[in-house]
């Protein structure tokens, strides 16, 4: 599924739209950046509450395609700018990581 379709299906608020609309097939939910580093797969979506630049740095190093920030956490400008520079999509949702992860899983894995 493409990033844009996924964002539309989950009703996500688009915070950083400067990204290549590529296919994603994986997701990873975590707030520990070392855990993301170790276990998230490339081309996936990160579901997290960590709304700061370092989350973008980790996403970029691992090759993630998008970040979904949960619980309507405020997004600092420097995070959005860093994501734009790296071409990583950033979305925001009022829902919790549990809700988003569940719906994301269903979208990506249910036939």
């Amino acid at each position: 599924m493409r990033i844009s379709e996924l964002a539309a299906s989950l009703g996500l608020e688009i915070a950083q739209s400067g990204y290549a609309d590529r296919e994603v097939s994986e997701g990873y939910s975590s707030d520990l950046l070392s855990d993301v580093m170790a276990n998230a797969r490339a081309d996936g979506v990160l579901v997290t509450v960590q709304a700061h630049k370092n989350a973008v740095a980790v996403a970029s190093l691992v090759g993630l395609a998008a970040i979904v920030v949960c619980n309507s956490r405020p997004l600092p400008d420097d995070m959005v700018e860093a994501a734009r520079a790296e071409g990583i999509a950033v979305f925001r949702s009022p829902e919790s990581a549990f809700e988003i992860s569940g719906r994301l899983w269903a979208l990506l894995h249910r036939p």
Partner: peptide, 9 residues
């Protein structure tokens, strides 16, 4: 609170 220091580094 920034998501570091989990002892995984």
């Amino acid at each position: 609170s920034l998501g570091f220091g989990a002892g995984m580094g």
